[in-house]
Design a protein around this nucleic acid. Structure first.
Lengths: 144, 144
DNA sequence: TATTGTTATACTCTATAACTATA
DNA sequence: TATAGTTATAGAGTATAACAATA
């Protein structure tokens, strides 16, 4: 597939880079507001959707399982997450948010206004067009 | 400003999150293909546009100046970057890519096909619409 | 005095390899 | 034997504080 290098494409590439930088920046700030690192916030967000084995957290984070031990350790010390036994397999430990962790995850999610706040400047029709373009960029079917 | 939580907005937010995740992933892979970390690749990319004082690199990276010392050290050991005196101020050290560093930066840029390759699925008209929507999201004027 | 870059320190995230307890 | 989680280790990025050279 030929790579496009026309001015329009390059400008869109740069704009996407700007969006990515701003998104990351705001994510880190939101995490820091709760004294969490980015990785800790991501894990807490994951677990708030569904408790899961350490192994699966590593898959979601695309990192080695040994790293997850430390991240969960630090969340556990702060009372945001707990390790539970898996009744079906005694080797497995299920990481699950505590009540406090669930609360923190929700606050975190609500403070992540990056993509919502700027979107307020777009009309419903604009948002629908943007959605379709992003879907096609990501190789998704038009009607998901 | 009221935060929108309608399904369409939330879907766009999620799509942007997916774009961000994929962008970062591919950036790290491209850097790793040259045995560089993400931070090292970002600094090399910066310097390939224009040599600059250590202090300014820190500002661009939004990190403390003390961190830049180590990053430049590691790039310098590999012969990708060099420190030059600033004739105008003897306190300042200008970091500049070597010839090898310039070559690596160019290869890195060319391998960053993330945003280009998927864009190939969009027509020129689509790309123009996407550009305008992203500009408005980022608070830019329509005709930059 | 203020600024630039550095050093020293400590913490977090990361990968690798070896270990344990279960399966 | 194979798998889940852990530990130990080393490298990199990060912030903080203190320092030397220069402005």
């Amino acid at each position: 597939m030929a790579t496009r290098t026309d001015p329009l494409t390059l400008e869109v590439v740069e704009l996407i880079g700007t969006v990515v930088a701003r998104y990351y920046e705001e994510y880190e700030q939101a995490a820091a507001a709760h004294s969490l690192t980015g990785a800790q916030a991501r894990v807490l967000g994951l677990l708030s959707l569904e408790p899961m084995p350490m192994r699966r957290i590593a898959q979601k984070l695309k990192c080695e399982p040994s790293n997850v031990t430390g991240i969960i350790d630090r969340l556990e010390v702060r009372g945001l997450v707990e390790r539970r036994p898996d009744p079906a397999d005694r080797r497995v430990k299920l990481a699950a948010p505590t009540e406090k962790g669930t609360r923190t995850a929700r606050q975190l999610r609500e403070s992540l206004d990056f993509a919502r706040e700027p979107l307020a400047g777009l009309s419903d029709a604009d948002r629908a067009v943007l959605r379709d373009l992003l879907r096609r960029m990501l190789g998704m079917e038009p009607s998901a």
